[in-house]
Design a protein around this nucleic acid. Structure first.
Length: 418
RNA sequence: GGGAGAGUGUCCCGAGCGGCAAAGGGGGCGGACUGUAAAUCCGCUGGCUAUGCCUUCGUAGGUUCGAGUCCUACCUCUCCCA
């Protein structure tokens, strides 16, 4: 299907990563003949990246796998300003220390996907704070600003839409694309970076960088964007009621991460296998051909493979096994998420409400626990709780020495006395 | 600078004669049905030491037995004029 000559673009195309490419033939030739250096920018507004960032990470992964050099650019500088695009709530001002902390967490994730310099690879982690923080406004205007045509900037969709809808567009926001364009040129100078990738919403910003590169450095740069990924039912990726699906194990356990993928909608399985696992396409085609309930097998593979990428093979297999015991055997898997309680509390009787709301956090409050009991949603050792005054005592301990608390049929936590 | 309007349940959108824990959606959660899916149907969707108490309608005051609702000031946003 793909007409590309380079392995890199072929893989991206076959797996569904490509939305738009600038000068595909020229980029293709470049990727075929030599080592291509490409980057993607990431905000560091949180201590971890979430599933929504996985797509760009995978693009960098394939870039490196096909013999090229990826740059993960941390937005240490741009985060200080705060990306204003999420307009509703004024964003928290992050201190430099927090940004630095977040960087550490995010860096850990990248090391799972990319081999960095000093660790046997050629991937680079850059931080735009290194050049943005020290910018001098006047110098910047003279060196960079003069290359930007406001007339042209106004013609970009992102800007045009705002103007047409007569929504406010702050000067700060207007400048964001300038800073991003500058990043691209800076990376070109420093690392001979020739390609910027990103989500489809980044197209305009990336193209700006290409133009700036040509004007400032006579550079020939490229853009490649990925489609916006939503689930079949139209929801954005990576959000659940419990919050974002983070990639760091201490924020979302491998088991929960596995569950997230296991619950993929039917219509998304094939697409997600291609995007979020590194299985061969032939294998994916076989899995995607499964029909009806058989598709569950494909979902398990998806869950395990996706989890293995982020948390390692061992954790992925463990999560799969825990799920198998819990859901397929109805047995008690000891590796379910566990919460410890003091033995004394159990001895004198622990109220179900407290156990669910305060100990496990399965529900958000006592009131919520009551509501769930009324709706038949809470279970103790697989028996539906009918009395909100029920107390948990050592009698409830299973032979394994734990008490299994469940919310609905999917969420389980073990209570363990210590 | 002048004029007009708006900010509601901390997920979002949105009604709200002075008696309001506050209509209705969306989303989410739970139940039924299934395949740990989707669709569909049903229930729930401020907190608590709970027949009551506490906190919520931009912020701070005021009027009133009682204020989301009226008054004053302030903040923020939008629109129109200059």
């Amino acid at each position: 299907m793909s007409a590309y000559k380079s392995e890199f673009l072929n893989i991206l195309a076959e797996r569904g990563f490509i939305h738009q490419v600038s000068e595909p033939e020229a980029l293709d030739a470049r990727a075929k003949d030599g080592t291509l250096t490409a980057y993607i920018g990431f905000d560091c507004t949180a201590a971890s990246l979430h599933v929504g960032s996985l797509l760009p990470i995978m693009m960098l992964y394939w870039l490196q796998q096909t013999g090229h050099r990826p740059i993960a650019l941390m937005g240490g500088g741009t985060t200080r300003v705060g990306d204003p695009s999420g307009k509703d709530e004024s964003r928290r001002i992050l201190t430099d220390e927090m940004i630095e902390q977040n960087l550490v967490g995010i860096r850990a994730i990248f090391s799972k996907f990319l081999k960095f310099e000093g660790a046997g690879g050629n991937a680079i982690m850059a931080n735009n704070a290194d050049w943005l923080n020290t910018l001098n406004y006047i110098d910047f205007l003279r060196d960079v600003g003069r290359h930007f045509s406001v007339n042209r900037m106004l013609s970009f969709d992102s800007v045009k839409m705002r103007l047409e809808r007569q929504q406010e567009l702050s000067f700060l926001e207007f400048n964001y694309m300038v800073l991003q364009a500058y990043d691209f040129v800076e990376l070109h100078k420093r690392y001979d970076c020739a390609l910027q990738m990103g989500g489809s919403d980044q197209w305009g910003n990336i193209v700006n960088g290409i133009d700036l590169g040509r004007r400032m450095a006579n550079a020939h740069l490229f853009a490649l964007t990925a489609p916006l990924i939503t689930t079949s039912s139209g929801a954005k990726m990576g959000k659940t009621a419990a919050g974002a699906v983070w990639l760091n194990a201490n924020m979302v356990s491998p088991y929960d991460y596995w569950q997230y993928w296991r619950n993929t909608e039917d219509g998304d399985v094939a697409r997600f296998l291609k995007l979020f696992t590194v299985l061969p396409l032939a294998e994916i085609a076989r899995l995607a051909a499964l029909q009806g309930a058989e598709l569950n097998e494909a979902k398990k593979v998806l869950a395990t493979e996706a989890t293995a990428l982020v948390h390692g093979r061992q954790a992925a297999d463990a999560a799969a096994e825990t799920a198998r015991k819990t859901f397929e055997e109805g047995a008690l898997a000891e590796s379910l998420p566990t919460v410890e309680v003091a033995r004394a509390e159990l001895d004198k009787g622990l109220g179900v409400l407290v156990a669910f709301a305060e100990k496990t956090g399965l529900v958000s409050s006592n009131g919520d626990a009551r509501r769930q009991i009324k709706a038949g949603g809470l279970k103790v050792n697989d028996a539906t709780v009918t009395d909100e005054k029920m107390t948990l005592t050592p009698k409830e301990l299973t032979p394994e020495g734990v008490i299994k608390l469940s919310l609905g049929r999917k969420k389980h936590v073990l209570l363990k006395p210590i």
